[in-house]
Nucleic acid binder design. Structure first.
Length: 605
RNA sequence: GGGGCGGUAGCUCAGUCGGUCAGAGCAGAGGACUCAUAAUCCUUGGGUCGUGGGUUCGAGCCCCACCCGCCCUACCA
């Protein structure tokens, strides 16, 4: 048994999330975490909403609300969506908690004391009317190279050249049209070059493990070559105050020294909350962070690789004093570097990139309301952007649901339960086993090895395909043994045996599919006469702010949490003869092909 | 501009060290069966493995060039 930290990317709270987001980090991390718990590991799965930064401020201004109001609203929507999807976080919190503020500030202070945070003056664009930093992408003007009139400050969309906002002819703010002022401003920079050696050693060591996806490790090593200091503060009034600069309220820590630290602060918050309710140690988070034997897996989309394979590990190394400048760890001690950075590619929709602003989007909430969690989870597991970009189409969504989930697995559950209910009303006793019986039981048991090995390497697509192959074997077993033809009393014992074996196989297949389809697993469990839940589900809880005096400003907020100790083991469990089985109602629903047209009409915008 | 990924049957994709690697699922066609949400099971795959060269006894798998698509390049996974 190992301690396993499942660190899941923090969704940005500037709006509700679409299915591409949960395909990138949500579902894959949940399947992995559920499997690891079933396999006996001690999993801590954390995440939260990322709520600071310019985009939220801009959106809030546009809507005439405060950044905090906007963040509160979106945080709640995201929490509800992720919980409804069944994502089994131990704690899903937010970056606007007092606990997070304190953890970030402790990290910052120690990193600075260790010498890795250096002050530099730079030229940066600010909005004259608000004094806020104007990010490059919020500045537009005429491209100096091709004269395109709507070039962005960071890049010209017309000629593709990378630009500096000061190059633009006639620059203006995209937010309110005013001319930005380019002023000298003081910021803290993380001295990444002083950490490059340690980072390189870590990456080389990780590469030799052979477990990282090749493109992730190669990309990470590549960006190390051009490493340079990066600003960790910004001119903005929405964010975590910079220790030592409390007299400058318009300077705040930047997302790079905010959201990623959430993995640690959420772990600490989890331990503190558990200490209050269960009396365990508030230092329990250290089991996952200070013990070098503990494993950590970080789940995200590919645009976030640089955060997790460079910036976050650099911050951890700087905190521990492990770079060229030496230093001593702070109160959190020496912190573990990521075992694995598991990055997804992108999911497109009907061949085009998701675009919330253009309405080319499918919100998680809409899919859950119309079709429930199972079809979406199944699609993401079977056809998600695991190692290359993947396209979501409604036609394939319907097709996979109908011909694989419903016709393959759902039908097996249904026909088995129907025959048992009709002939016995309970799970029958098992008589002498014949070769076919032994063979199918062995095939199914083999699934715990084959599917498990794939899930341990977070290969969802191959894992669920293997599980579905086994489902097919069980369907074949029923066709070959033909229990529905055993009507004579002399065949009664054989009928009982075949159906007993079938129920055993369905039960085991259900366990194999439980990490992928937890909601369905609980329903199938009930169909077979089981009591309660087979696999625990997360819940939303309204909690009190732990640090009311931190200045963060929250009073109560919703979190996703759960008690997953009742997770079933990753193994075959003998079904109990005599368990009542009623005539089942279908667990899965077939979708009418017309939903393809309906949905396409919705997204045509 | 720089970096990365991909281009394999109608569709979605597997193909570890180059030599049964030309495959799976779905769709389509034919058959069997009827317990089941017309579900299940069996049979059925002539696709220049993006293009053009090269290395090799032998290349989707290695090298070079080119074409196409996508992504990252300092904050929408």
């Amino acid at each position: 048994m190992s301690r396993v930290l499942s660190a899941v990317a923090w969704p940005y709270a500037n709006g509700p999330r679409h299915i591409g987001h949960v395909a990138g980090f949500g579902v894959p991390s949940d399947v992995f975490s559920r499997y690891m718990r079933m396999a006996g590991h001690d999993v801590l799965m954390v995440s939260g909403t990322d709520e600071h930064g310019t985009p939220i401020l801009v959106t809030a201004d546009k809507e005439g609300v405060t950044a905090r109001e906007l963040a509160d609203r979106n945080n709640r929507v995201i929490v509800e969506d992720l919980a409804a999807l069944g994502l089994s976080y131990d704690l899903f919190t937010r970056t606007t908690t007092g606990n997070h503020y304190r953890v970030v500030q402790e990290m910052f202070t120690t990193v600075r004391d260790n010498g890795y945070m250096v002050e530099q003056t730079t030229k940066s664009a600010i909005s004259p009317s608000t004094g806020r930093t104007l990010p490059d992408r919020y500045i537009e003007g005429t491209c100096p190279i091709c004269k395109y009139a709507e070039a962005r400050g960071d890049q010209c969309d017309n000629c593709g050249n990378q630009l500096d906002p000061t190059d633009l002819i006639d620059p203006r703010s995209k937010i309110n049209g005013e001319t930005p002022a380019f002023v000298d401003t003081q910021h803290y920079f993380l001295d990444l070059p002083a950490l490059a050696g340690a980072l390189g050693e870590w990456l080389d060591e990780r590469e030799s493990s052979g477990t990282w996806r090749p493109n992730v490790i190669k990309f990470s090593q590549n960006i190390l070559k051009e490493i340079r200091p990066r600003a960790m503060t910004r001119d903005i009034d929405w964010g975590i105050p910079v220790p030592g600069w409390e007299d400058q309220p318009t300077k705040r820590l930047y997302v790079w020294f905010d959201a990623v630290i959430g993995y640690l602060s959420a772990s600490i918050e989890w331990a503190r909350r558990l200490a209050e309710t269960e009396g365990s140690s508030p230092e329990r988070w250290r089991d996952w962070w200070n013990d070098p034997e503990a494993l950590s897996y970080y789940f995200m989309g590919k645009d976030n690789i640089v955060f997790h394979s460079q910036i976050w590990p650099a911050e951890l190394l700087a905190y521990s004093g492990s770079g060229d400048k030496g230093g001593e760890p702070g109160t959190f001690g020496e912190l573990n570097l990521p075992t694995e950075v598991v990055s997804s590619e992108f999911m497109t929709m009907e061949s085009r990139q998701f675009s919330t602003s253009r309405g080319h989007v499918i919100l998680v909430r809409d899919v859950l309301e119309r079709y429930g969690p199972d079809p979406l989870r199944y699609f993401i597991c079977a056809a998600g952007p695991e190692t290359s970009d993947a396209d979501f189409t409604w036609a394939e969504f319907v097709q996979r649901n109908n011909s694989e989930l419903v016709a393959g697995w759902g039908n097996l559950v249904n026909r088995t339960a129907t025959m048992v209910a009709k002939n016995f009303g309970e799970i029958p006793e098992c008589g002498p086993l014949e070769e076919v019986d032994e063979a199918v039981l062995a095939t199914v048991r083999g699934g715990f090895g084959s599917v498990g090995a794939l899930l341990g390497r977070h290969k969802l697509r191959a894992g669920i395909a293997e599980a579905m192959r086994i489902v097919g074997e069980v369907n074949k077993y029923l066709t070959v043994t033909e229990p529905y033809k055993m009507k004579d009393d002399s065949q009664r014992e054989r009928l009982a045996t075949v159906l007993h074996v079938a129920v055993q196989c369905v039960s085991d297949c259900n366990t194999l599919l439980a990490p992928f389809l937890p909601h369905a697993a609980n329903k199938v469990h009930a169909v077979l006469g089981g009591e309660g839940e087979l696999i625990p589900m997360p819940r939303i809880e309204e909690v009190d702010e732990l640090e009311p005096d931190s200045g963060a400003g929250l009073v109560t907020y919703p979190v996703i949490t759960g008690d997953y100790t009742a997770t079933p083991a990753w193994e075959s469990r003998a079904v109990v003869p005599g368990t009542k089985v009623d005539k089942p109602t279908p667990v899965f629903t077939k979708l009418d092909p017309s939903v393809v047209e309906e949905e396409l009409a919705r997204v045509s915008g």
